[in-house]
Design a protein around this nucleic acid. Sequence first.
DNA 1: TATATTTGACCCGA
DNA 2: TCGGGTCAAATATA
Length: 370
Amino acid sequence: MENIGEWEQKNLKNELLRGKELARQLQIYLNVRQSSSMAASSSSSSSSSSSNGGGELLVKKILSSYEKALSLLSSSTGIQISESPSTLNGSPRSEDSDHDQRNASRKRNILPTWTQKFQVSPGMALEGSLDDGFCWRKYGQKGILGAKHPRGYYRCTHRNVQGCLATKQVQRCDDDPTVFEITYRGNHTCSQVSNLTPPSATPDQFQQPNSSIDSLVQSHPPDQNQQTSPPDALLNSWASLKVITENLDTTHEPTFPPFSYDPTSNYEAANHVKSASTVDVNFAEFSPSFISPTTTTSGSGLRYFPASSSVLSEGFVGHQNLQANKPELSEIFSSPTSAVNSQTLGLEFPFGEVELMEPSFTFHNTNFFS
DNA sequence: TATATTTGACCCGA
DNA sequence: TCGGGTCAAATATA
């Protein structure tokens, strides 16, 4: 827990950028909701718009938190924080939205996807080694039209056992063979503990949220893709992040090197939260992943991960370091692409009462965005 | 022997 | 019909 490797730092950056981007999308979504509701009914929209106004305030706070975290990370580690042009303007390009939507619609599995680019030192390389802390199993490789290098297909090792639907595709860039583009699809629903987990962060620490998720997975048809983002990975990252914040000046290899090659090598993650056709574009289809239908079985209204909610709120209430380092919460939102869920968007948050940056700010979930 | 990888065939959406 | 994604038998590895 003492040393934090460059890889973790890059990962932190990636996750922060990702969370920030998703928060932006939430902001956009709220704006859209607000404007549409006002247009629909100027007389009855007061409560709605005010709620959205509160939502916007919340989103701004979240964005601010990400900004701070990124700034801290940048200044403390020297990591260049860059975002892809597509994310800089804060809104998805409309033409690309259409494109992405078309793209997504012809895929068999409509899952949230995002892309990360990794650069490795020449000669190293092995895409299979581009480990992200999860256990992947290669199930295919295929040449892609127009691409010099074949694309590798990986799925979560725990797919069979736990029904985890997370997959990733690894494609070496034509232009720069040292760059790998990894497209993740779907979030982990398995309870595997990331390799990123430091020894001190035992699986038990993450069992709670996972167990509830496991039950969701088991009771849920696999093709429903409960986007219960990987709380384990999430929490693991948080654990790692804590290390980061405590040891920003260390650049040694991680105590739990996730790669098979020298972790001190030039392993550059030029991540950007892509696109995902389904995730970033369609906020109209946004619905928090924890609002899995499975979680709604309690009859009266929605119940969301009672176990993890405490974790979530803890993150919000807790130390700012930790707070800033919870971008993976955004994963929870990267969600379901099913339009069926669209109306659930943001109407309920799983946090219960959550305190944000200021102790005085109380976030009451159920009506906040409604 | 169990598990992971390879690879050709098959499926599906556009 | 084509291309991307997945399946599953064969093979490799620990």
